[in-house]
Design a protein around this nucleic acid. Structure first.
Lengths: 238, 238
DNA sequence: GCGAAAACTATACGCCGTGAAGTTTCTGTA
DNA sequence: TACAGAAACTTCACGGCGTATAGTTTTCGC
């Protein structure tokens, strides 16, 4: 046993190489978009042969799946952090922090956003289970926390919601219901719709479709937040 | 001069070939997604050499640009038709018709939706001007018509909107302002935000991100429409 | 009927993912 | 400590991609 642990030496090297592959892949993605993630480019960057990567990832799609997981987790971390870093007394401020963190992350990591939410890469097909849905559930759970924080104000607006628990994915509910035991299905539906609103504006902006419509997507998003408060029945501040 | 017009014979064949290339490309896209649009595959399907296509489109991206234009125009036609086919007396019904046409088109043509709004194809970069922005402006104008129809109800909700005409693209305003001379900037901002809402929900559904959250995206969308009416100040029907 | 232009093919280059086989380097054990 | 075997990595190969260049066939206008 050395200081680093002789038993793990080979595994340590392996883990380092795996990490480097991912790091290089993310760098390529950041500079050239998801399509720039090619085994050959990664290998070139690392001074290896493309086929060497097959010792670490069985196929390029598996590498991409791993990256999606990492990036999605980073997004979930970013919004969770923003949420938790904001005082919980005023739900409006917290919600604004969450939403702004979401948009800001997307604008700083547009390629990551594309990787997660777009056609990730030429012929890529998302695997059924896997950890990416987990991160998606984390984001949705965060949104539900948002809805839960506002629910005292919002509930009277969604009395006639037709939603039932059976309308939602069990995996999502397994996270959401324990965390918010008193919340009705209508609140989860509300959370998903808020997701849709934010995702829509942000993805139009990230993909450049707003550029030919408005010069100030920022202003549009802030007005969206103001209305989000109305939608949640939260009275206007200041 | 023959019956078909001898002068145009060569040009007619040319037009027919161009049309066939586009037709085959769209078929490939419908079955295999935007990435399946390959010059070689098109040529194979047509019994030609891949290079023959260069006589019709200078590059693959130009072909894709043309397709985007066509598909985007088809989408714009679909929503315009739905709008015009609905009696104008009741704005709620008209707006619902528009939004449902948008979603229905996307669900029937998911690959087309991806082509328009996603990373269209591996390394594709959208050209600056071109006719695709035109179709986008048509869609936005349709949305503005929607906002305009509801504006008598909605205006009091958006008194404090901070928008100015300079916040919008001149090309868009060139279409919108003549069509709706009395509409303020706030209404255009409202239209863009509605676009965001609908786009968000539909794109999450089309890209499969809703599948791991809810089993009834349809219900979610209908509730979205109900709230859209509230957002526009339109009183509940029935 | 013929010259020119248009339509198309052949060949080639450099990308890509990936499979099969071979080579080097390390490691646990006899 | 020597060595079998595993792990890491390279080499070579195949087929697919966009596209540039050069050559061939077909067609049209005069």
């Amino acid at each position: 046993m050395t200081v680093t642990g002789s038993r793990g030496r080979r595994e340590r090297l392996r883990a380092e190489t795996t990490a480097e592959i991912k790091k290089v892949a993310l760098a390529l993605m950041a500079s050239g978009g998801p399509d720039a993630i090619t085994l050959r480019a990664i290998a070139r960057e690392m001074g290896m042969t493309a086929n060497a990567i097959y010792g670490y990832f069985p196929t390029r799609d598996d590498l991409v799946t791993t990256l999606i997981n990492d990036v999605y987790t980073a997004l979930a971390d970013a919004v969770d952090t923003a949420w938790e870093a904001t005082p919980s007394a005023d739900p409006a401020v917290r919600i604004e922090a969450w939403a702004n963190a979401f948009r800001t992350w997307a604008l700083i990591n547009p390629q990551g956003f594309r990787l997660i939410y777009g056609d990730p890469v030429p012929g890529y097909q998302a695997p059924e289970g896997g950890p990416a849905p987990d991160a998606a559930h984390r984001v949705c759970t965060g949104l539900t926390a948002l809805a839960a924080a506002a629910w005292p104000h919002a509930r009277h607006l969604y009395q006639d919601s037709a939603f039932d628990w059976s309308d939602f994915d069990p995996g999502l509910l397994g996270k959401v219901r324990p965390a918010f035991p008193d919340l009705p299905p209508a609140a989860v539906a509300l959370a998903l719709r808020i997701w849709g609103h934010l995702h829509g504006l942000v993805s139009l902006e990230v993909y450049g479709h707003m550029r030919t419509q408005t010069t100030s997507p920022e202003k549009l998003f802030q007005e969206e937040l103001a209305q989000l408060m109305r939608m949640l029945g939260i009275p206007r501040q200041r």
